[in-house]
Design a protein around this nucleic acid. Structure first.
Length: 551
RNA sequence: GCGCCCGUAGCUCAGCUGGAUAGAGCGUCGGACUUCUAAUCCGAGGGUCGGGGGUUCGAGUCCCUCCGGGCGCGCCA
């Protein structure tokens, strides 16, 4: 890549200054390359002189001048200037942008993927996300988790990591119990018998329907078998969740049952390890974890005084299991309301010295608006807007794109009326429209007998218009955008990228007629359009949003 | 009280490990389809980056402090 060649030039210049004694040994010079925001600042710039001047007590501009003088000649560098406080700006010949287009044409869907690099520091990464309790259908809030977790998994893969997607099923404990008893009541009611929903039970309509369905399917044969009723209900809920996620474009490698951890003695085993480590104690009949010793704000209960394990106990066994399955890096996608549990899980990892990186990503909650009012959702009261309903209303693409528009750190306002009524104005259509427009141009070309020839024969040097240059430049930034987005765990950076790329294409379309009387120029512009199409397709694939050829 | 997140244009938000003159969409006003998709484009207007202090050649970005908002602080999950 061009950046590597520029770094090479800089390294040579710095080396020469070292030999001359201008830069003493022991002073490191990190040649940091940037893409200047303004064209008058060149194609690339470096602040190396500014950074060095602080250590050397030399005026930065003078130092920059010395570095520039020491730079070896290169025919692909048109001009080097020193500007501002001491930036060194590189102006390159247009050849490197032509190389970018040829790279894209050659690599196609692999452009911007770093799979081929072996120096993956994170080893096997597991991304665990959604993991909503199977006590009801997924609601809109889970949509943010699903869209984010899935896009993150795709992004990490694009950045070269080996990724497993996992859904942790909370099919043990009090909530599932309550769910089972609620379903039992609805089931009995459906059979015409006297039954009352437990206090705090799940009141949603979906359970009424489920009870009726059970009565229909099995008659009264499950009466008096609450365990079977619960198991049947959980199974049905999971089927529904899985179907919803599939519509949403989200597929998991593993569905991991908490109950299995209980049944196979993993919790007892985990407790034993903590006890062996000497980090537990008993108090008032409960077993506590001395997590304050490992950075937590207070100690936590592992086993209640009635003998039942806490969620932390399960999470500990689960984390150990992740290590045993060979993961080096465990990513958790949690709602911000769980942030209190972050420190205790990290404390577990430290107490047991588990050889795994625990990375917990918290997303701020989704506020759903309807009719200008916040919609309060609660599974127990049954007041929910389901993810399925959202997909019905706006489609999976618009929903995913909307969830991936913003950084995880901010609360997300999802205005149903706005997205329903004005779905044309959703930014996803802006990007998809650019894609469809390119496809249309390529179709028109083909219809007129102007097919895309070999890129080697296209006179890419004729792409000199400002809009063409800006577009090609943006295409060249795609691979590093993927890396930065992956490193920051920020798929929304890719979303932003697609919007900017689409905008630059629309500007190019305005300024430059692709199919014209000039067959040579037409070939060059067709290739610029085609490579833009390819990069849009690649980026949308990482976001899990479709790229339609017609709109 | 303690912890995490947020505060950038009228609204919703981008802004990479600190870089050069802080950006976009929506909304407002005014324009552009006989020609490759007008779900598009062009122009105008709009800012004490919550306030204050500090570090730095350089701060929306880092540190301290205050103000405002959201979430959490159970032998609930």
């Amino acid at each position: 890549m061009i950046q590597e060649r520029l770094r090479g030039l800089l390294a040579e210049a710095i080396g020469e200054l070292r030999r001359d004694g201008v830069i003493p040994d022991g002073v490191t010079a990190l040649a940091e390359l940037q893409r200047p925001a303004r064209p008058e600042h060149g194609d690339f710039s470096t602040n190396v002189a500014l950074v060095l001047s602080g250590e050397l007590q030399t005026p930065p501009r003078a130092l920059a001048d010395r570095i520039v003088q020491a730079l070896p000649d290169a025919d692909w560098v048109a001009k080097v200037t020193v500007a501002g406080p001491g930036f060194i700006n590189f102006f390159l010949t247009h050849a490197w942008l032509q190389d970018t287009l040829r790279d894209i044409a050659r690599l196609r869907e692999r452009y911007g993927r770093w799979d081929s690099y072996d120096d993956v520091e994170d080893g096997r990464v597991q991304v665990e996300f959604v993991s909503a309790n199977p006590t009801g259908p997924l609601h809109v809030g889970a949509g943010r988790n699903a869209a984010y977790g899935d896009a993150l998994a795709r992004l990490l893969e694009a950045a070269g990591h080996s990724v497993d997607r996992e859904y942790y099923i909370n099919d043990a404990g009090r909530q599932i119990d309550l769910f089972g008893r609620s379903l039992e009541a609805r089931y009995l009611q459906a059979l015409g018998r006297e039954a009352e929903l437990p206090a705090d039970g799940y009141a949603g309509q979906y359970l009424v329907d489920l009870g009726a369905e059970l009565a229909e399917a099995r008659g009264d044969e499950l009466v008096g078998h609450p365990e079977d009723i619960r198991a049947w209900g959980v199974e049905r809920m999971l089927e529904g969740i899985q179907a919803t996620l599939e519509r949403f474009g989200v597929l998991f490698d593993t569905w991991f049952s908490e109950q299995v951890l209980h049944d196979t003695g993993k919790l007892t085993e985990a407790l034993g390890r903590l006890q062996d480590a000497g980090v537990t104690y008993e108090l008032e009949g409960a077993v506590w974890f001395r997590s304050t010793q490992f950075g937590d704000s207070r100690d936590r209960v592992l086993v209640r005084s009635d003998g039942r394990p806490t969620y932390l106990m399960s999470d500990t066994a689960y984390l150990i299991d992740k290590v045993e399955r060979g993961f080096d890096h465990a990513v958790y996608v949690w709602g911000a309301d769980h942030h209190g549990a972050v420190a205790s899980l990290e404390a577990v990892r430290r107490a047991l010295k588990l050889p795994i990186v625990v990375e917990i990503l918290l997303y701020q909650l989704v506020n759903l608006y309807s009719g200008g009012e916040v919609v309060r959702m609660s599974k127990r009261t049954g007041e929910i807007v389901t993810l399925d309903e959202l997909i019905d209303e706006v489609g999976a693409d618009a929903a995913r794109f909307t969830f991936l528009l913003r950084s995880l750190d901010g609360a997300l306002d999802f205005d149903l009326d706005l997205v329903k009524a004005k779905s044309q104005e959703n930014p996803v259509y802006y990007v998809q429209y650019a894609y469809a427009r390119i496809c249309s141009i390529l179709r028109t070309g083909a219809e007129r007998g102007i097919a895309l020839g070999p890129i080697e024969e296209a006179p890419l040097a004729e792409l000199v218009h400002e809009s063409e240059q800006a577009l090609a430049r943006m295409l060249s930034e795609y691979p590093e955008t993927v890396l930065v987005a992956a490193r920051l765990r920020a798929p929304h950076r890719l979303t932003t990228y697609t919007r900017e790329l689409a905008a630059l294409f629309h500007a190019f379309y305005r300024d430059c007629r692709v199919i014209s009387d000039d067959p040579q120029l037409t070939q060059a512009r067709l290739w610029l359009a085609e490579t833009t199409r390819q990069v849009l397709a690649n980026a949308l694939a990482v976001l899990g949003v479709s790229a339609p050829e017609k709109m």
